[in-house]
C-alpha cells in the first residue's frame, strides 16, 4: 500500500531522514516510534505529498484514498463537528444531502461522537477534537489513515479510547493505518508492526512481541523509559 525506498530528506544542511526504507501492507496497522525530532511526522507528510523526498521515492497505491489525522485535529473553528466531517463530501463529491448525512452520521457513530455533532470545536475536549478529526479522515471511505501523534496531550483513558478506535476502524473497515506516537505501551496494544526511528534511520522493524525482546540498546532504553524503569 505504501512503500518508502531509501528516502533521504534534508532541510537546508540538516538531514532529517537518512535512507529510510520500509513498506506497509494493505490492512496493516504500523506504529512509528522514536524520540522527538527523529523525523516521524516528516515521514508521514511524505505520504500525502506535503513534503517531497530529497532523494529516494515514496509510493502509495494509486487507487488509495488517504486520510490524515493532524496532531491538533485541524478542524475548522466556524463549522460544527457535523459540518467539519461533512466538509470533504460537500466540497469534493456530488453526493445528495441525504447520502452525505448518512455517511457523516456513520462516521460520527464509528468514533462515538454522535452526541457532540452540533457543537463547535472550541466547545469540545481535545480527545473529542481528535475523534472528530478521525471521523473526517475516514468519511470519504479512506483506505489509509495516517495518524500524527493521535494521543499527545490526552489522559490515559482517552488515549486508550483512541487506540481502540484505531484498532476497530482497522477491523471493521480494513483501514491501513500508520500511527506516529511516543506511546510505546499503547503501540504494543494496537499495532501489527512497530518501527522505531532514530537519527533519521529505521532502528527496529518488528512485530510487538519481538519488539519488546529487541536487543538493540536504544530500543531497550526507549521501552524501559516508557515503563518508567531503569536499565
Amino acid at each position: 500500500m505504501i512503500e518508502f525506498e531509501n528516502v533521504v530528506k534534508r532541510f537546508g544542511r540538516k538531514e532529517v531522514l537518512s535512507g529510510v526504507s520500509f513498506t506497509v501492507a494493505k490492512g496493516e496497522v504500523v506504529a512509528l516510534l522514536g524520540p522527538s525530532g527523529t523525523g516521524k511526522s516528516v515521514l508521514l507528510k511524505h505520504v500525502v505529498g506535503l513534503l517531497a523526498p530529497t532523494s529516494g521515492s515514496v509510493t502509495v497505491a494509486p487507487d488509495a484514498h488517504v486520510g490524515y489525522l493532524f496532531q491538533g485535529g485541524a478542524l475548522l473553528a466556524w463549522l460544527t463537528v457535523w459540518e467539519n466531517v461533512a466538509l470533504p463530501l460537500r466540497e469534493t463529491t456530488d453526493l445528495s444531502e441525504a447520502e452525505i448525512a448518512r455517511r457523516v452520521d456513520d462516521a460520527l457513530a464509528a468514533v462515538e461522537l454522535t452526541e457532540s455533532a452540533d457543537k463547535y470545536p472550541a466547545e469540545i475536549s481535545g480527545g473529542m477534537v481528535k475523534r472528530a478529526g478521525l471521523a473526517r479522515a475516514v468519511v470519504c471511505q479512506a483506505d489509509v489513515v495516517l495518524y500524527d501523534e493521535p494521543t499527545s496531550g490526552l489522559d490515559p483513558v482517552t488515549s486508550a479510547t483512541i487506540h481502540r478506535l484505531i484498532k476497530r476502524l482497522n477491523a471493521t473497515r480494513g483501514i491501513t493505518s500508520v500511527v506516529v506516537t511516543h506511546d510505546v505501551l499503547g503501540a504494543l496494544s494496537f499495532a501489527d508492526r512497530i518501527l522505531m526511528l532514530k537519527d533519521g534511520r529505521v532502528l527496529a522493524d518488528a512485530k510487538p512481541a519481538d519488539f519488546v525482546k529487541s536487543v538493540v540498546p536504544e530500543v531497550r532504553e526507549f521501552i524501559a523509559s516508557a515503563k518508567g524503569e531503569d536499565l
Binding site: V48, L50, V66, G67, Y68, F70, Q71, G72, A74, L75, L76, L87, P88, E91, T92, R136, C140
Partner: peptide, 15 residues
Amino acid sequence: MTVNDEVAALEIMHI
C-alpha cells in the same frame, strides 16, 4: 489556520 495545519488538511482532502 496555516500554522494549525488546517490549510494543509484542506489540501489533503483535495479542497
